[in-house]
Amino acid sequence: EDYYQILGVPRNASQKEIKKAYYQLAKKYHPDTNKDDPKAKEKFSQLAEAYEVLSDEVKRKQYDA
């Protein structure tokens, strides 16, 4: 799945936009606030993985290549 789609940001998003999108979605899908939703944990880990790659310039360049 596309990391940009997961975070809901365009491919040319700035680091600030990526961070903002991640924090909004992380708050929304955090397992502690969605105890009754088994998919929230999965969504949250996808968000974390996408953010880890896109927030790191080197990893992001490799991902975009």
Rank of each mutant, 00 (worst) to 15 (best):
Q62K: 09
D36N: 13
K59Q: 06
A40N: 09
N12R: 07
K28T: 09
S14D: 09
D2T: 08
F44S: 05
P10F: 05
A21T: 04
E49H: 07
K35G: 10
T33K: 12
L7C: 02
D32H: 09
V9L: 07
L54I: 04
D36T: 13
V9F: 00
K16F: 15
E17D: 13
E42H: 11
P38L: 10
V58H: 10
D2L: 04
K59I: 03
D2K: 03
Y4K: 00
Y51R: 02
D64H: 02
K41I: 12
K19S: 15
Y3F: 13
F44I: 07
N12W: 08
P31N: 13
K16A: 14
E42K: 11
L47M: 08
D64G: 02
V53E: 02
Q5N: 10
N34I: 14
L47T: 03
F44D: 03
H30V: 05
K59L: 08
E17I: 07
K19C: 09
K16W: 09
A50F: 01
K28C: 10
N34P: 06
K16E: 15
L7M: 08
K28H: 08
Y23F: 12
L7R: 00
K59G: 03
Y63H: 04
A13D: 00
K16M: 15
K35V: 11
L47K: 02
Y63A: 03
S14Y: 03
P38T: 07
K27H: 11
A26G: 05
P38D: 10
S45T: 08
E42G: 07
F44H: 05
K39I: 14
F44G: 05
Q46F: 09
F44K: 03
N34F: 06
P10H: 09
I6T: 07
F44Q: 05
A65R: 07
Q5L: 11
A13W: 01
V58C: 10
Y51N: 02
E1K: 09
A26Q: 10
F44V: 05
S14K: 06
E42S: 09
K41A: 15
A40H: 08
Y29T: 04
D37L: 05
D37H: 07
K39V: 15
A48V: 14
D37M: 04
D56C: 04
H30Q: 11
K28Y: 08
P31T: 07
P10G: 12
L25T: 04
D32W: 01
N34D: 08
D56W: 02
S14F: 03
S14R: 06
L54K: 00
S55A: 07
K35C: 09
E49R: 11
E17A: 11
Q24A: 13
P10T: 10
H30L: 10
K20E: 15
N12H: 09
L54S: 00
D56V: 03
K43R: 11
I6Q: 05
S14C: 07
K59R: 13
L25Y: 04
A40Q: 08
Y22L: 02
L47E: 01
D64W: 02
E57H: 08
A21V: 05
Q15H: 10
A48P: 02
V53K: 02
D36M: 10
S45F: 13
S55P: 00
Q46Y: 09
Y22F: 14
E57W: 13
L7D: 00
L7Y: 00
Y3P: 03
F44T: 04
S14T: 15
K41F: 13
F44A: 09
P10M: 07
Q15P: 13
R60L: 01
K28A: 10
